[in-house]
Amino acid sequence: MTSPKDDSSSTNPQAPQPVNQLANQPTSQNEWPLWEVFIRGQHGMSHRHFGSLHAANAEMAIKNARDVYTRRNEGVSIWVVQANDITASSPSDKGPLYEPAEDKVYRHPSFYKIPDDIGAM
């Protein structure tokens, strides 16, 4: 059996190490890839992030997600995506990204005064 080290040397040594943008580390080269798990609950909701797990491939990730996250009928549909494939906004971009929305109060219905006589609107 090839040891993990021999195997990784056969990949392009220049290739940047995959980085998990959701957490604080480059993904370990000696563990099964990390997958983020998204599950649709029973009630017509959109898929929601539930957690993560390690699996060798997508099929195994789905099966493990079924066992780890839906032991009590929590879901009707599972998505798994490799953590390395997710691009995340960075916390330091919080200002530039979201502050512009703060002074746009006219985007909310409460900005407009509708006369009482009008009834429900």
């Binding site: 059996m1 090839t2 040891s3 990784s8 563990e31 099964w32 890839p33 060798a56 491939n57």
Partner: peptide, 14 residues
């Protein structure tokens, strides 16, 4: 099991 499946995952990535 860990080693075998890790080799499989790396092969697929390659």
């Amino acid at each position: 099991v860990r080693d075998g499946l890790l080799a499989h995952a790396k092969k697929k990535a390659r």
